[in-house]
């Protein structure tokens, strides 16, 4: 009888522990999408994450920050690092938050300024003011008002310093998948004579485009999804759903793999913006093959 109680107590306990482990390491990160991408952190920062004492003292970062300060004074604009750490210091939480916000603004402006020296169109995604702007040479070409923004919890949970490092430099697109083509070319054979030319002449009309859902995977482990605000149905909806589900499938695969390897690849933080269909098409087609993006958040 006693053995029976012991058996069920142990079994329940072990199941609870198993449930906790699975929930905290596999299920929650997938549901909340909260892991910090390793690529977002510079090596010193990763060390700091693993070693709380080192982080408190800020030993590793002080030299690096001094270098960064020197670099920032040069004409070529480089990323300025986080505030100078030192053994002792003063300042309230409000002051620090203010400083972080200022540093963030400064870094984003630097990134934007650096991009303006390039010869291609880039995207400035301002999640604070909910505007996606196409820019070139510092000139705003097109503003798209974002109707809805969804940001992964993983990004919301970034430590301020990690966030600064993560967004300080422009994101470069690795690859993109979309329900529309980038250049909708129509191939036409030249007519043999004028009669055939007159026959084939069709009055032009505004082209109908399919519903828009664009998945853009950027370097530093960021996924940006641009979706149209108009409701889609039928075949279009199926295509969009299959693209949408591919993200969840990939993350579940990573989690399953983690059960055997005990090491889960970092979840890809995701930002979803909803814009009018016309704007989504403009954003996708105006950007070059490997565009850069400044993320303001």
């Amino acid at each position: 009888m006693a053995k029976k109680y012991l058996f069920w107590t142990l079994t329940t306990l072990l199941i609870l522990i198993a449930g906790y482990v699975l929930t905290s390491t596999v299920i929650l990160p997938v549901v909340n999408k909260n892991p910090l991408p390793e690529a977002a952190l510079p090596s010193a920062e990763v060390k700091g994450e693993n070693n709380a004492k080192k982080q408190e003292k800020g030993e590793n970062t002080s030299k690096k920050n001094e270098k960064a300060d020197k670099n920032s004074k040069k004409t070529s604009v480089k990323v300025q690092s986080v505030p100078e750490p030192e053994e002792a210091g003063t300042g309230s939480e409000d002051d620090l938050m203010k400083l972080f916000e200022l540093k963030k603004t400064e870094m984003l402006l630097r990134a934007q300024y650096n991009l303006s020296s390039e010869d291609s169109i880039y995207l400035v995604l301002d999640l604070i003011n909910k505007v996606a702007t196409l820019e070139m040479k510092g000139i705003p070409l097109h503003d798209s008002n974002i109707k809805e923004v969804w940001v992964s919890n993983s990004i919301k949970m970034f430590h301020n310093e990690a966030l600064l490092h993560w967004i300080a430099q422009p994101f470069v697109l690795k690859n993109a998948v979309a329900t529309i083509v980038r250049v909708p070319f129509i191939v036409k054979n030249a007519p043999k004579d004028t009669i055939e030319a007159n026959k084939s002449e069709v009055l032009p009309s505004a082209r109908k485009t399919e519903d828009v859902y664009i998945v853009m995977n950027f370097e530093r482990n960021l996924q940006l999804v641009i979706q149209q605000s108009e409701i889609s149905d039928g075949e279009n909806k199926m295509r969009i759903d299959s693209l949408r589900n591919s993200y969840v499938k990939r993350e579940i695969d990573k989690s399953i793999k983690a059960l055997s390897t005990l090491k889960r690849e970092a979840i890809m933080p995701k930002i979803v913006i909803t814009v009018p269909k016309s704007d989504a098409i403009i954003l996708y087609r105006a950007l070059p093959q490997k565009p850069r993006m400044v993320l303001k958040m």
Binding site: P29, N34, P35, L36, E38, E49, A52, Q55, E56, K57, G58, S62, P83, E84, P85, E86, E87, A88, G89, T90, G91, S92, E93, D95, L96, M97, L99, S154, M157, F158, H159, N160, E161, A162, R264, A266
Partner: peptide, 20 residues
């Protein structure tokens, strides 16, 4: 990998991260 530390270190102050 998951940034849980950032979840628990909610309080910021100059001493903890050493800003002068």
């Amino acid at each position: 990998a998951y940034g849980m530390k950032s979840f628990f270190t909610s309080t910021l102050n100059a001493k903890s991260i050493g800003v002068r």
